[in-house]
């Protein structure tokens, strides 16, 4: 069967500006593969990002995009979704953007269970600002901003945080496995509810610890390991394997998924009439509205 949209349809004319070898290339490719597989109409897709190396991603695809300010991609995306729930809304960004400056929005977007897909290119370092510690930098990691003792804070664990905050699709992918990542992204977009795909995306310039090899030596596939993604308790147990329990085994794949929770859009009363962007403007019966003031 001939597909309506070729793979290249989704590419823009703008070439990525990432360093050669950057893990973000794999995420871009995986996202492109996912929307191609789903045959999404590019004009009905909006990719919202924040600020950071990875947040340049919307420019490299041919969909609509909003390249927002630092840490605010999720609320911008929520506004887009509420104005026009018919759009496919995807959010991309880095660990600094989503788990640092924007972590408040991250939690609230998940507890609302918007039908939004969030890809975080997690490289455990601030790249665009040239190598400071990030909220997911491992304890002890020496960076420009932690040159003496290394990082002395505990890292944020996005997987546990997502589970605790009410995300209904929680996965971890790795840029060393584009196909696996594309599958997780595709299923995340397909999922009716908030999906988080934490993409381990090595920074080849500023993070000399969490490299491709670091991950290759430690990752394993949750699904091959027999993990049941409908079991939230089991999901928590898997989530804490890294970085809380240790750093020897890093689970990849789907931690948790449920379709039993209605999305925010399902419950929002104003959306019962359909997409707000298509509603007529103004008030039909002003006298009725004004009667309470008389």
């Amino acid at each position: 069967m001939k597909l309506e949209f070729e793979m290249d349809t989704y590419k823009s004319e703008i070439k990525p500006t990432w360093c050669p070898g950057c893990g973000d290339f794999a995420v871009l490719r995986a996202l492109q593969m996912a929307i191609h597989t789903l045959q999404l109409e590019p004009w009905n897709v909006v990719i919202v990002s924040g600020i950071g190396c990875s947040s340049n991603l919307p420019h490299f695809l041919s969909t609509y995009g909003f390249h927002a300010i630092h840490g605010r991609a999720l609320p911008v995306a929520e506004g887009v979704k509420l104005a026009n729930p018919d759009l496919q809304v995807i959010v991309t960004g880095g660990d600094g953007d989503g788990y640092g400056i924007g972590v408040g929005h991250f939690i609230h977007a998940m507890r609302r269970n918007f039908d939004i897909t969030y890809l975080v290119m997690n490289n455990q370092i601030y790249g665009l600002t040239t190598g400071q510690a990030s909220p997911t930098s491992e304890k002890g990691m020496k960076t420009k901003s932690t040159p003496i003792e290394g990082v002395i804070e505990n890292p944020v664990d996005p997987i546990s945080l997502a589970l605790a905050s009410g995300a209904t699709y929680v996965a971890r992918a790795f840029s060393g496995d584009v196909k696996g990542m594309a599958e997780l992204v595709k299923n995340g977009i397909d999922h009716h509810g908030f999906s988080l795909i934490d993409c381990m995306s090595p920074c080849v310039t500023y993070n000399k610890v969490n490299t491709y090899d670091f991950f290759r030596e430690r990752v394993y596939d949750l699904q091959k390991d027999g993990h049941d993604p409908s079991d939230m308790k089991a999901a928590f147990a898997k989530a804490i394997e890294w970085p809380f329990v240790g750093r020897d085994r890093i689970p990849l794949g789907l931690f948790y998924r449920t379709e039993k929770v209605p999305t925010y859009e399902d419950l929002e009363p104003a959306l019962k009439k359909g997409s707000p962007v298509r509603q007529p403007l103004g008030v039909e019966d002003p006298d009725e509205l004004l009667s309470e003031f008389l």
């Binding site: 927002a68 609320p75 911008v76 995306a77 929520e78 887009v80 026009n84 962007v277």
Partner: peptide, 11 residues
């Protein structure tokens, strides 16, 4: 930021 997103989306 939500108001910005909604305005961008056309409402």
């Amino acid at each position: 930021n939500m108001a910005v997103g909604a305005g961008f989306a056309g409402v």
